[in-house]
Amino acid sequence: MEELKKQLKAQIIEALNLQDIKPEDIEDNAPLFGEGLGLDSIDSLELMVLLERHYQIRVEDPREGRKILQSVQSMAEFIQSKQPA
């Protein structure tokens, strides 16, 4: 899980081209949208692309997406729940 979160942070930074932010700057439970990293709805679509391209998980409903993409923690939990145990 820790490894997954670390990897996820690097992928987020790369996918969204976040400037001057290192993986360790992103807290596991910090909100990604609004206050936190200042991401918006287009970023959320890009994060869903990230999930699909790197983890082969497709999120169909943008409303569902919002819950999954709350934080790195929630993303990681979602990914794990989708992966075969």
């Binding site: 287009i42 679509l45 890009e46 692309v49 699909e52 391209r53 497709r58």
Partner: peptide, 13 residues
Amino acid sequence: QYNERALNPTPFI
């Protein structure tokens, strides 16, 4: 490249 799947919307917008 991605065969119409998992496309990033930014270039389209």
